[in-house]
Amino acid sequence: MRPSPAVRRPTPAVSGLGRPSWLLVPAALGMLFILLPVCAMLTRISWPDLPALVGSPSSVAALLLSLRTSLASTALCVLLGTPMAVVLARTSFRGQGVLRSLVLLPLVLPPVVSGIALLYTFGRRGLLGHTLDVLGMQVAFTTTAVVMAQTFVALPFLVVSLEGALRTGGQRYEEVAASLGARPSTVFRRVTLPLVLPGLVSGAVLSFARSLGEFGATITFAGSLQGVTRTLPLEIYLQRETDPQAAVALSILLVAVATLVIGTTGRRRGLL
């Protein structure tokens, strides 16, 4: 299968072409700006204590909860975000631009605001709170609330990257498939999806990473209880109160997990 132009593997660069040498200075500064704080954190770790700090029951519970909820919210993002991206990329209707901006709102909202919005929607006294209550569902203070908070903030990442892939990919192959008699569902399943699969994967990885780092919406909407709602970022924030060393150790753990996920998935797909 030929990869679509949007996600084609980068061709080996001709060294120096389109890259004036003065560009190296700000580029290096930018890289330092990102890497230096991470290195600074590494210098603050007391390495002999690291296994004990990272292996404590509360840390392990937080890590496992973070991985579980981030995986669940990534799955939800794929299930809900893929149709959203396809609808936004493959149809045009009045107010589409406005709708797209609104869908991307969680990207620019401070996470705490997202949490408050979720609380006023799904909370006990929220818009849907009574309805949920009648159905015997109470989401506040449950792991479900954590997944909802993560999905809310991570969904736009998937929609943006997949819609981008769909648009740059164009519709040529879809038109050919349709002209050969394939029905819309078949075209979607056999042509559209396989072509944008790399875009979908990179969107999913971004969603996972965003879910893993989610803090503000979770603490506002879901609460904080070990093994139930206290994810790794919440545990780090709490540990910092009494044990800055433990907080740094857990931060390193979070950085390691995030790097591992983004690095392996991204590199294998040649996307990131």
């Binding site: 006023y120 506040a140 904080s224 206290r230």
Partner: peptide
């Protein structure tokens, strides 16, 4: 059901009726 980070967070959960 939750061990919050600060009194403000606890108060918030009570004020919203959660």
């Amino acid at each position: 059901v939750s061990e919050e980070q600060s009194v403000t967070d606890v108060l918030g959960k009570v004020m919203t009726g959660e």
